[in-house]
């Protein structure tokens, strides 16, 4: 197998693995149970998205994708910072308190 063939093959496998990771993270977003958990999972989705774009950049050999990935990283970071502010100012909501025990029982 030549180098570029191996690279194409690796990129395809990586896309599959990243899709799997994406779906797993969505499970956490749906399950919650609290707001910070969802924020964390969204942050994780952004970093999986960055990895996705980087793999596509290699697969298509189109280098402009790299800038898209960097920009997404910036936006994702700012979004998480803003969400953290929101979590801190909102405080604890009554809805969030109960499910953490339920999660532990599973």
């Amino acid at each position: 197998m030549s180098g570029s063939e191996f690279l194409q093959w690796a990129a395809t496998i990586s896309l599959g693995l990243l899709t799997f990771a994406f779906l797993l993270t969505i499970i956490r977003i749906l399950r919650g149970p609290t707001l910070p958990d969802r924020v964390l999972a969204l942050d994780m989705l952004v970093s999986i998205g960055i990895a996705y774009i980087a793999v596509v950049a290699i697969k298509t050999d189109f280098s402009l994708y790299l800038d898209v990935a960097i920009a997404l990283g910036l936006v994702g970071f700012l979004a998480t910072v803003a969400f953290a502010r929101y979590v801190q100012h909102r405080g604890l909501k009554r809805l969030d308190e109960a499910p953490s025990g339920k999660e532990a029982q599973k």
Binding site: A11, I13, S14, L24, R28, I48, A51
Partner: peptide, 18 residues
């Protein structure tokens, strides 16, 4: 290619951890 594969594996493990 090896970097890509390891990176994707790390992402999957992170998602499993979450």
């Amino acid at each position: 290619g090896v970097f890509l594969l390891i990176g994707a594996l790390f992402s999957v493990v992170a998602a499993i951890g979450i």
